[in-house]
Amino acid sequence: MKIIDCRNMACPAPVISVKKALEEHGELQVLLDNGAPRENVGRFARNRGFQVSEEQIETGAWALSITSDVNITTSCTSRDLNSGRVLLITSNCLGEGPEELGRLLMKNFIHTLLETRDQPTSILFLNSGIFLTTDGSDVLEALEKLKGMGVEILSCGLCLDFFGCKEKLRVGGTTNMLSTAENLLSAAQVIKL
């Protein structure tokens, strides 16, 4: 099995390297740093129907074995097109106007999602939107409940890093731009707030 070493690579390089390697080799073992690289690569592979097994090889580093009997040329499209409703949240405020009101409206909106009949498949948090999924957010409880109801909660890893909030993520997982772009392009409906 082909082995690639993606340790010490910045997001989204590991996912891109793995994508290329899978297209060439079909199966592989990838060495990754713990945290966002491990999560992102694992999610990327699973979304394409691959089996992923993980093994810790040293402190802070993991080996992911990615295997499948499905040809990569078909598995690349395994995440069905039109596969759901994505909510893209790019700010911790809703709408333009006074910041205080914007924060209140966003908080109100997320709490209200719990009562709506048609919930999103996933919610992507980018830019200052990541302040809603990290320490100090007033909507952690609501997001945790949405997650429990099957809504995928994902925060941009680059944004978490930019704002120094990598260790402060309290709900959901991290994602990278490749996954974000694919999520948006394959969704039946994208609602940007």
Binding site: L104, K107, N108, H111, T112, E115, D138, E141
Partner: peptide, 8 residues
Amino acid sequence: ILLIPAPR
């Protein structure tokens, strides 16, 4: 405390 939407 938590500020929430008032129930319908």
